[in-house]
């Protein structure tokens, strides 16, 4: 009797060990696996809190999918960069820790606020290891998981592809007087990157001359340029998010996108694991997924750029590798701040 029991126990132990070795990771969806132990701990936490600046339908869709395969509830809040920044600043000053992952653009914020204030923990997801070095923090605090490529969004019923501007300096031509729209760097971190890069490339005379063409300045992010161009209020957007224009074009709207010859300004949208978050393990699981090829393929389906080399793009989208990239490192915070003020001196605000 005793022997049988003993044998059973040994067998069970053997079985358990074997399983652990064979299934150290578990595949949650095709092409995406996580450490089984991590997943178990994460599932015990049961939920993950995620602030993101992607559009709400995209956030919601991703959250739903993640919930289905991981059984971990995603509490997402869609906020702009400024919204996330103000909120986490206030939360930290009140010693509140309600968020696990934050995600937004504006590199200087990550480099000069989050990192020195130690609001993030180092965490390098499997996918991040495959990224080019421009798209991740060398210290591993944050990495891009999607990106906005900005070009000249234009109204095709007002401007033919042939007449459309091809390079930034084309915009200085008086023929574009009263026909250009752009954001304001005080309201759009993404455009602030462009302003910093362009002012270094061409000097501030570029913007002084641009001002003579009386561009329309919008509030909010560069996303807000889309309706201006779609409606035909202005013909060319200086810093148009290509994904939005490509989506509109697909739906039959009279818009197109042109990538400037000098290069395309890319706004990286980073994700970082927050220190002392309520669900650190669930945060890691979500982080793994955000940086997986399978997730990024979905993001790319909406025409966004993604850093993962294995992510698949739709056929009607220029992939990342074929674009001439202009991007601003987070360490350029100082020049970004100066650029903002300088821009305001020229354009007001």
């Amino acid at each position: 009797m005793f022997k049988v029991k003993m044998l059973g126990a040994v067998a069970a132990t053997l079985l358990w060990t074997g399983a652990a070795v064979a299934q150290a990771t578990v595949e949650l969806e095709p092409g995406f696996s996580v450490d089984k132990e991590l997943l178990a701990k994460a599932q015990k936490e049961g939920k993950v809190s995620y602030w993101c600046s992607l559009t709400e339908p995209e956030c919601a869709q991703a959250a739903k999918r993640f919930e289905e395969f991981s059984k971990i509830k995603v509490e997402f809040v869609r906020l702009s960069t400024g919204g996330i920044l103000t909120r986490i600043t206030k939360e930290r000053s009140a010693n509140i820790h309600s968020v696990d992952i934050i995600s937004h653009g504006d590199p200087p914020v990550w480099e000069t606020i989050y990192k020195p204030k130690k609001w993030l923990v180092q965490y390098v997801a499997e996918g991040v290891k495959t990224y080019a070095k421009e798209y991740k923090d060398p210290e591993g605090f944050y990495a891009a998981h999607w990106m906005i490529a900005n070009g000249f969004g234009y109204n095709t019923s007002q401007v033919s592809a042939a007449d459309a501007p091809k390079k930034y300096t084309d915009l200085l031509d008086p023929r574009w007087k009263g026909k250009i729209a752009m954001p304001h760097p005080k309201h759009s971190g993404g455009f602030n990157e462009a302003v910093t890069i362009l002012s270094k490339m061409f000097g501030w005379e570029f913007f002084q001359k641009l001002n003579a063409n009386q561009p329309l300045v919008t509030i909010g992010s560069q996303f807000n340029l889309k309706p201006i161009i779609v409606n035909g209020e202005r013909q060319v957007a200086l810093h148009g998010a290509d994904a939005l224009f490509l989506t509109e074009a697909k739906q039959g709207k009279p818009v197109g996108i042109i990538y400037p010859e000098e290069g395309t300004v890319i706004n990286q949208i980073f994700a970082g694991l927050v220190a002392d978050g309520p669900s650190p393990n669930a945060g890691k699981v979500l982080m793994e997924w955000l940086h997986s090829a399978s997730y990024q393929t979905t993001v790319a389906a909406s025409y966004w750029l993604v850093p993962h080399p294995d992510a698949k793009y739709p056929a009607d989208r220029v992939p990342l590798k074929d674009l001439k990239i202009l991007t601003l490192p987070g360490t350029e915070a100082q020049s970004a701040t100066e650029a903002r003020e300088k821009f305001s001196d020229i354009f007001g605000g």
């Binding site: 960069t81 400024g82 920044l85 000069t112 309201h187 602030n192 970004a336 605000g349």
Partner: peptide, 14 residues
């Protein structure tokens, strides 16, 4: 009010 709003962007100056 719009200037105050801008102070909530980077660098935040609450």
């Amino acid at each position: 009010t719009t200037q105050i709003w801008a102070l909530f962007q980077f660098p935040p100056q609450l």
